Computed example of a mutant assay.
Amino acid sequence: MTEHFGDTPLDEINQASVGVAVDAILRPGAAASTVVRNIIVPVRAVMSHAAWMGWGPEPRIKSPELEEATPKPQTPETVALMIERAPPAFRPLVVWFACTGCRVGETLTLDWAQVDLSARLAILLPETTKAGKRRVVDLYPAAVAMLAALPHREGRVFRRVDREPYRASDNGGGQLRTPWATTCQRAGVGGRWQEWKVAGRPKRRWIPEIGPHALRHTWASWHHVIHKDLLRLRDDGGWASVGQVECYAHSLPGHHAASIRQIWGLTPQWQRNSSVA
């Protein structure tokens, strides 16, 4: 964005010039949230600082309207298809998200030193969690089996198809985009084709209607179906308050419980030997 605006005078940066920047910097059809995060917020920040210093006018740039984010859990049937049809190198991540509800940044920075398969738990370090607090993640049998099948036991747990670790990131960014889109498309998750041209050649890619973070919302809804305990959900998921998880209390009908247990690997024998209700 710095290269785009260059030495443009502050009093020439307005709604129209920001619109030009959006078209020049972002891919066609970029979501409103992407426009706000990547263009509107930084432009406003720079202009507000300049105005405070007396170098230019206060920013008068309107943001596009954002749709209210409503957590929409995926059904066990859909997630089972996602796991089955994900690219092989990406499948462990889909299993992990569905079984733990961990955020993408927490997941991509997970090291084998933080995992204890015999105790069926993983430790998230304070510097990797959103709340800045250490968190213990109980591993369901499906997650344990997935981890046990990985071919390495040192360094980062989750690797790309070339077996190199993912970059540390809060949201995964483009490094998860292609395998996630492939997974969603193969599983029948809704989305749309984004089309554009590069040097006159048509390009297109599938844009799923959900991102990896949707499996955190899904896990939370499933957690309440199985455990019926908002305090436990708050603690297990690393939220700050019960108020933040109340939206999951009735987001998925209870008749999905058997299918959820199957995906998590919660057999009757395992449940008798654990604290899972």
Rank of each mutant, 00 (worst) to 15 (best):
F5V: 04
G6H: 04
D7A: 08
N14Q: 06
N14V: 06
V18L: 10
G19D: 14
A21D: 10
A21G: 10
A21M: 11
R27K: 15
P28Q: 06
A30Q: 12
A31T: 07
A32F: 09
A32E: 11
R44D: 11
H49A: 13
A50E: 01
A50M: 04
W52R: 11
G56K: 06
E58G: 04
P64K: 03
L66D: 13
A69M: 12
K72Q: 15
P73C: 10
I83F: 12
P88R: 11
V95L: 12
V95T: 15
G105C: 09
G105Y: 05
E106K: 00
T109H: 03
S118F: 14
L125C: 10
A131Y: 02
D138P: 06
A142V: 10
A142P: 05
A143F: 05
M146C: 10
L147P: 02
L147T: 02
V157G: 04
R159Y: 12
V161F: 08
E164H: 12
P165A: 08
P165L: 10
N171D: 15
G174V: 13
R177F: 15
C184T: 06
Q185M: 14
W193Q: 15
W196K: 11
A199I: 11
G200L: 03
R201D: 13
I207S: 11
P208V: 09
I210V: 15
A220E: 01
S221G: 06
H227N: 08
K228L: 03
D229C: 00
L230K: 00
R232C: 00
L233H: 00
E246V: 11
A249L: 02
S251Q: 05
L252T: 01
L252C: 01
H255S: 07
H255M: 04
S259N: 09
I260K: 01
R261V: 04
R261Y: 09
G265Q: 03
T267R: 05
N273S: 07
